[in-house]
Design a protein around this nucleic acid. Structure first.
Length: 529
RNA sequence: GGCGGCGUAGCUCAGUGGUAGAGCAGGGGAAUCAUAAUCCCUUGGUCGGGGGUUCAAAUCCCUCCGCCGCUACCA
């Protein structure tokens, strides 16, 4: 049986969920749903990252223990997944016992092995430098700016403090050659898109320095094995979630043996380095296979501006869903922008996609076909006669969509998959106009029947393939085509509609978005007569 | 500073040597099954500027301008 393991990053608990989180999770959800329908056993993981000094401080500020604080805010991300109709199989929290155990196990495994140059992978040293709690990162002296208040700040604007403490280091510098070989020879498709791959390669090529992987100045983290004064660096802890969730350190379980290495870690472009450089090195050092692929998507701006708390323009997923509906939002986010590039979320663009692609092109196609069948073909699947070249062409285009969409999604090209699907939506609209069943009704009822059959069959295939993107809307469409529950996966893609099957009364799937205050007659948009 | 990318129709972008493309927006028409939806036709670009190679350049080379990403660092 095919299998597919896809992960979102674990989200930092004290962030408020915004459209960026929704985007990442949504992309994974579409892949997970597609693979399940395509017959794969799927494990889809998301969760929350709950350790680190920032969380410790936020909890203190809220007058709570870190555990109570994270118990509370972690719910925000479970709620987000629910609101987006996400089909994750597991939700991991880094504060869970299974994860503490797993993180300590990977530490021990890394420490037990030698680097490619025969040295210890982990050694005790001392770290001294400027540290920004907010960024969870160290900065060089020269990067800092001194503000008018006399405080030193990182380029990000975060306050920094001088930190000098004993620290364990990971001998990343010895892994450079192995990483390059992994990117270029062993797994050329490891990082996508290509622009990010090039950046990662050039970063590794210029030389790697050893990485500080423990801290002693705060407590909220996973204790380093046999060194209780130290807690593990948040990123080593966080990345390990991907193997925790499939049972590590118990590598003999079904979960681990079936699903590891992961097929895809979906990430935002800001965390490519952690996933594409540190993570494979940590894993290899621990004697564990690295993941198959890391894909970094872009950022959303809003109405042309960067999203930020200070601008007050952070887009909350719930607000979008309330305004436009869940499935239109899901569609928009994956259709509007070439996946991997940055994009802009604007009300105008959202409405354009909703009204043009969903209401006019697809929704209206379904409505005109199904209501015609209801009124003029006895409300049942029509009996086809001999097929003409035009019929074959439409049906063939619809049939070819499965391999086409499968190929695009194998490379996370959501926008291209949707574009291919909409080509056929257009084909069907052209076909119905050319065949004009409303004329055939009077002149050639048998031919009309064949035309309606070809159209409903095309709708069936479109509905099946669009389920991963818009599960609720496509369930409605497939209901209206009387497709039984056991005929909605891709194994049933060739199981054509049966003539004579009664169809329920058609209902609109995608209502048009009408601006507030705009009359139902529209304003000046009327063409022709 | 180094490496890389981008700059093509009003907007978003595709197109990597051989007569400039798509979607949306704009204009005209057809049809009337349908969510005032659909279909057809159409306006529109000296492909950032300049120079070069070539029979031929959006496409290759040089240079300049503008924007962006990664990364390094200076006095």
């Amino acid at each position: 049986m095919k299998h597919y393991y896809v992960t979102t990053p674990i989200y930092y608990v004290n962030d408020a969920p915004h459209v960026g989180h929704a985007y990442t999770t949504l992309a994974c959800d579409v892949l997970a749903r597609f693979m399940r329908l395509d017959g794969a056993r799927v494990h889809f993981l998301t969760g929350t990252d709950e350790h680190g000094q920032k969380v410790e401080k936020a909890a203190a500020a809220a007058g709570m223990t870190p555990q109570a604080f994270t118990d509370k805010v972690s719910q925000n991300f479970r709620a987000l997944a629910k609101a987006l109709n996400i089909s994750n199989d597991d939700f991991i929290r880094t504060t869970e016992a299974r994860h503490i155990k797993s993180s300590q196990a990977i530490w021990r495994a890394i420490a037990a092995n030698k680097s490619p140059k025969g040295r210890d992978n982990i050694y005790l040293g001392k770290y001294a430098g400027w540290y920004a709690v907010r960024d969870e990162a160290f900065y060089g002296e020269n990067e800092l700016v001194t503000g008018p208040d006399g405080k030193k700040r990182a380029p990000s604007g975060a306050e920094v403090e001088w930190v000098e403490e004993p620290s364990y280091f990971f001998r990343l510098s010895d892994w450079q050659d192995w990483l390059i070989a992994y990117y270029e020879t062993e797994n050329p498709g490891f990082i996508g898109p290509v622009s990010r791959r090039n950046e990662a390669i050039s970063f590794v090529r210029q030389g790697l320095t050893d990485l500080s992987i423990s801290r002693t100045t705060f407590k909220w983290g996973v204790p380093v094995p046999d060194a209780p004064d130290h807690i593990m660096y948040v990123w080593l802890d966080a990345l390990t979630n991907y193997i925790t969730a499939v049972g590590y350190p118990d590598t003999k379980t079904d979960l681990f043996s079936i699903f590891w290495p992961a097929d895809l870690h979906m990430v935002g472009k800001d965390i490519v380095r952690f996933h594409a450089v540190y993570w494979p090195a940590f894993l290899k050092a621990a004697g564990i296979a690295p993941p198959q692929r890391v894909f970094a998507h872009g950022w959303w701006t809003v109405e042309g501006q960067k999203m930020s708390k200070s601008l007050g323009n952070v887009v909350e997923p719930n607000a979008l869903i309330a305004r436009y509906g869940l499935d239109p939002v899901r569609y928009f986010l994956l259709r509007e922008v070439p996946f991997g590039q940055d994009g802009d979320f604007s009300h105008a663009a959202m409405v354009r996609r909703l009204n043009t692609d969903l209401a006019n092109d697809l929704g209206n196609l379904a409505q005109r076909v199904l209501s015609f069948v209801a009124k003029n073909a006895g409300g049942a699947v029509s009996q086809p006669g001999a097929l003409t070249a035009a019929d074959e062409k439409l049906l063939g285009a619809a049939r070819n969509l499965l391999p086409a969409v499968r190929a695009e999604l194998a490379e996370q090209l959501f926008h291209k998959a949707l574009d291919a699907l909409w080509q056929v939506v257009g084909d069907a609209n052209r076909y119905i106009d050319e065949q004009a069943p409303w004329t055939l009704r009077k002149t050639d009822p048998a031919r009309m029947s064949t035309v309606l059959y070809a159209l409903t069959e095309t709708l069936r295939r479109l509905g099946l393939l669009l389920q991963p993107f818009m599960p609720d809307a496509m369930a409605k469409l497939l209901d209206q085509l009387a497709i039984p529950a056991d005929a909605r996966d891709f194994a049933a893609f060739e199981r054509a509609l049966v003539a004579g099957t009664a169809l329920p009364a058609p209902q609109g799937i995608f209502p048009r978005y009408v601006e507030e205050g705009e009359a139902t007659a529209g304003k000046g948009g009327q063409k022709g007569r």
